[in-house]
Amino acid sequence: MVVVVVVSVLVDVIAPGDPFASSGPSLRPPTADHLMGTDNFGRDIARAVAHGVRTSMTIVCWVVVMSLVIGLAVGMISGYRGGWVDDLLSRTTEVFQAIPLFFLALLVVGFFGAGIDHLILLLGFTSWELLARVVRAQTLSLRQLEFMEAARSSGASSARIIVRHVLPNVLPAAVVVMALVGSRVILIEAALSFIGLGDPNQVSLGYLIYSAQPFLRVAWWMSVFPGLAIVVAVLAINLTGELIADVLGPRRTISGARTRIGGGAKGLVQAEPQLAPGTLASPDPERPR
């Protein structure tokens, strides 16, 4: 993760120059000059990959911030308030969950043109549904605990309770979920630009792999390195999410999610929808009471 962040922040220092500019003979295998080889226009792949990583991370950051705000608000309010507010918000969440994100993104790009800003807005407004459900379940189970009772009986307002007591307790779980969302965003963006719907003015990892397609027979490096970059970025985000969750809250936040993010939490993403609402935050024997 450190590498990914450093690359995206310092891209102009370590890989200076225009990634679209030619910098040597075309279709050369990796050498000391061009660590990842060059493409059909003689562009340096290492430089393109560095810029691509930055594009991905920019999108991820914005989307994560947007869905964090929406998801936390929806989840905490619906879990804390209950009643018709909860019903309404839960139904809305379900609908968002039923819409295949990739196809929606495709439609938006097809109608409004390709652009990072469109992509960020779209993914930001549609990626919060998982977070909302997890936060809601957590909030529901928090409500039962004694310290909440204590806060309520000492006259704290709902808003104060939500911000001071609920928020810190749902944050670890939220971080795990956001890591998942972040990696999903990278993959969606890569897939979109792979089929040629990325922002034409930004280097994107998916686009690099797309342009490698006709040259698979002669230049494997054009495909292999950008792909590796995606894998590293996704793994980095997942593992960091796990790490932050461990630091923030040393208890098990979501049953199973902490053990192994890739399988565990992905299983959670997919398996959860049909289960009863309480399943996510099932009472955990290890949680201090």
């Binding site: 993959l187 495909s223 950008p226 792909g227 995606i230 894998v231 993010i261 890739g262």
Partner: peptide, 16 residues
Amino acid sequence: VSLVAYAIPGFWLAQL
């Protein structure tokens, strides 16, 4: 393996 499999974009795996 599943941790890594989750991180691999399908189209890239296809090319490999």
